[in-house]
């Protein structure tokens, strides 16, 4: 009897051992990809790790794989943030849109949705969406309005009425933004036709009008000198040289008329360029008056 009990005990232990060993043996037989590291849970863990490391491109790939198995709002939101951070704004806005209803990210998703349009430079669409009050945010409505108004300074669209434009900004910054508004509304442009006419009347004057004083004086001297040489050569009966300098005069004269118009265009483009740069620096330094990001 004793022997039989001991035997029974031993068999039980072996059975227990086998039960515990089974998963291990089973593990060896399972394919590598389905095991441990590539399971959805571990993909999520790895995705979060990469997200924290700001390796958004790789993180987005992991989140995407996870979302194939499970739909999770947090993961979807982080996935959208990854797309946003790597500049895939269109894809990001589509994904933020899926979080608009019935989850804790509704408000933030809506803000990022508009930000995606703003940073994706689709200003017109941003304004249309904001004006139509689509996907209105309760918490961030003012931030979205600010983005919308800043977008007017970024492209060639018609500015809204000044008071409504400024009202969404704090009093402390309104005077500076009002300056931007005036600069945008009444840029100090030079007229290319006027510049060309000036140079047609007095060579070089069109260039001086556009601020290129040195070029204007040079154009005047070269045109006048070649015209004088043409005149003096004709007078001295050196007809060939006379015609040569006449051609040169025409060359300098017409080139200067054309160049004055081009100079006015460059002047205007520089004003636009400097304005855009100033706007980007000013608002960029203030993060476009957006709420501080938690991510």
């Amino acid at each position: 009897m004793k022997l039989s009990a001991a035997h029974k005990n031993g068999s039980l232990q072996i059975a227990v051992l086998l039960i515990f060993l089974m998963p291990i043996l089973n593990f060896a037989q399972t394919s590598y990809n389905n095991s441990g590291l590539f399971s959805p849970v571990n993909r999520l863990k790895f995705g979060n790790y990469l997200f924290a490391d700001k390796d958004y491109l790789r993180a987005s790939a992991e989140f995407k794989e996870y979302l194939k198995s499970f739909d999770d709002d947090t993961v979807r939101f982080n996935y959208s943030l990854c797309l946003f951070n790597i500049g895939k704004y269109e894809e990001a806005s589509d994904n933020f849109k899926t979080l608009f209803y019935g989850n804790p990210f509704t408000e933030k998703a809506r803000l990022y949705f508009y930000e995606s349009y703003f940073f994706g430079k689709d200003y017109k669409e941003l304004r249309d969406l904001a004006d139509n009050q689509n996907y209105k945010s309760v918490l961030y409505s003012k931030g979205i309005e600010r983005l919308k108004n800043i977008s007017y300074l970024m492209d060639d669209s018609r500015l809204p009425e000044m008071n409504s434009f400024l009202s969404v900004f704090d009093d402390s910054v309104q005077s500076r933004i009002a300056k931007f508004y005036y600069q945008k509304k009444n840029p100090k442009h030079k007229n290319p036709v006027t510049a060309a006419i000036f140079s047609a009347i007095i060579p070089g004057s069109g260039k001086i009008y556009t601020g290129e004083i040195g070029d204007g004086i040079t154009a005047f001297i070269t045109t006048a000198l070649s015209a004088y040489l043409a005149y003096s050569n004709f007078k001295a009966d050196h007809n060939f040289r006379g015609w040569l300098f006449t051609g040169l005069t025409a060359f300098f004269y017409s080139g200067n008329v054309y160049g004055s118009a081009a100079s006015a265009q460059i002047y205007n483009a520089r004003i636009r360029f400097n304005f855009d740069k100033e706007v980007k620096i000013y608002f960029g330094e203030r993060n476009y008056f957006l709420p501080k990001s938690d991510y």
Binding site: L37, K45, F46
Partner: peptide
């Protein structure tokens, strides 16, 4: 790099 990073985490 992705896979080495995965290895680093786990």
């Amino acid at each position: 790099i992705t896979e080495y990073k995965r290895l680093l985490l786990f």
